[in-house]
Every structure is written in structure tokens, then in C-alpha cells.
Amino acid sequence: MNTAVNILSLGIPFSVALLIASLGEMFNQRSGVFNLGCEGIMAMGAFLGMLVPYSVGHGGPTAEIYNVLGLLLAMGVGALFGTLFGLVVVTFRAPEGIAGIGLQMFGVGVAGTLFRHFIGGTQSVIGIDRTPIPLLSAIPIIGPIFFSHNVVVYLAFLFVPLSWYILFKTPWGLRVRAVGTNPRAADSIGINVNRVRYQALAVGGALAGLAGAYLSLCQAKMFSDGIIAGRGFIAVALVYFGHWHPVKIMGGALLFSLAQSLQLAIQGQGIAFPYEFAVMLPYVLVIVVLAFSRESQLLGPSALGKPFNREKRI
């Protein structure tokens, strides 16, 4: 019983970086652009997020402010790089797959280099600590699983209904969905396709940056070269897995991270099971689920990956 509670209460915070990043990627893809560079933006977010509290913070009553500044900086730079990605793939119509891989390598490389220059070695920060919700966190079982996390975790799960509302109930969401499915139709009634795609990419970038900063500030409380560890790519896969719908994407993120915390538990309990296979478990799970989930062409963004060019017919 105790082990089960532990697996669940660990799994939920594990899912947060994936959840935030893949909600961002969902906006990208709904607008018709897929950003494989998510991993790179997350790496930069992770470094910048901890740089602020590391260089000026050091505890004290103002620490919280520097943490928030770190998160905001990560989001701002993420949005900037989302926009730059837009310049490459929306304006110059470069192939999105290649441009995304470029952005991934660039982001990871720059974050690592700046890290060695400004910080150097393994340095930890106080980071953002857990804020158990009064009363609710005292409930047995449910309390530790759902109500004993840090603020960003609560925020991330609030993003799920929020992004659903934005996508399906606001004019902006309507425009995003339209330019991702039939950009020519959107163009014909006076919607600026490329502008909407830029906006979606900026939102997606900001969320990727935030996801990265979550890893360094809330989860690891430090930065290292491999901190993102492929989560950016998993996030892209989760968007397909979740059929571009926030709730299903949340399901995917939870499934993956519960598998992750299960494999940690297997290792931690000293069960005689080769740990190499345990580590593989979550990734194998994603591949298996993706292989068996049917793509729903009717509802997804059918113009995904196709640059828009008004002058070009067919």
C-alpha cells in the first residue's frame, strides 16, 4: 500500500515537465507546425531557470522572487526561440523536421556551453519547494498523492482545462485550429495564417521553456548536460498519442511518468530484475502505445508539417 502511494506521489511530479511541454507542442501542431526542437528549448529553459536564483539568490526571504524570475526568463527565451523557429519554417518554409533537429542540437549545445562558462560544475540550488495544500494534504492516501507538491505542479494541471478552453472556446483557438487544418480556407476569409502560426509557436516555446525550468528548479534542483534526457521528444510523441487533445495528452504524460516511477520503485526495492530493462520500460511503453493507437485523420490538424504558400496551388 505504502509503495503504491509512493509510486503515485512520485509519478505525478515526474509527469509535469512532459505535460507542460506537450501542451505547448499541442498548440504548435494544432496550428500546423511541429517543433522537434522542443528538447533544445527545454534545455535552455532548464539552464536559464536556475541561473537567476543561482547567481543572485542564495536563500533568504527574496529567494522566491528569484525563482519566479527564473521561470519567467525561461519562458521568455522559450517564446523567443519559438518565434525564431517560426522565422525558419513559417517565413522561409524550411523543412520542419530538419529545422527542429537543428534547434534541438543548438539549444542543448548552447545550454551546456553557457553552463560550463557561468557555473562550471555540479551546483545545486534551493529551488522551488513543495507547498502542501493545508487540510487537503492531510487526507490519507489522497493527500500525499495529489496535494503535497510544489506550485508548478498544481499550475501544470490547471493548464489542462485552461488550454482546452483556449483551443475550443476562444477566437484565437478557433484560428489556430483553422490554420492547422485548412490554411487556405482561413486565408480566404482574411485570417493571417503565418501570424497565427507564429503566435502558436511562441506559446509553445514559452511552455517548453517553462517545462525545462521545472526540471532544474523543482525536480533536480541543479543543472547537468543531460538533464532533459529526451523528454522533449517524448513530449512530441505524446501529442500524437493524445490526438491533439489536452485531456488525452495529460493521460499520456501520466502513463509515461507512472511507468517511470514504477521502474524506480523496482530498482529501489531491490527486486531481482535487471535494471537496464526497468529503465527501458517507460520508453518501450510509449512505442507500443503509439504503434497501436490509430491516427484520427478526421479530427487532427491535417495541414501539419505543410508550409503555407498562397501562390502555390495543389
Binding site: T170, T181, S188, L298
Partner: peptide, 30 residues
Amino acid sequence: VHQQYMLVSNMTVTENIALGYKAAWSALKL
């Protein structure tokens, strides 16, 4: 009305028309 219909297939009729009907747009709600 174009030869190829300019409609977004995964949206409803109302949503398709809302796309161009700016009178129904406000920042937070459609």
C-alpha cells in the same frame, strides 16, 4: 465561393462561419 470549398473539415458549420464573423469575437470568448 471558390471552386475548392474553403471549409475546415474538423470544425462545425457554426465554427467555420465564426472564423470570419468578427462580431462574435472577444478576447476571451467566442
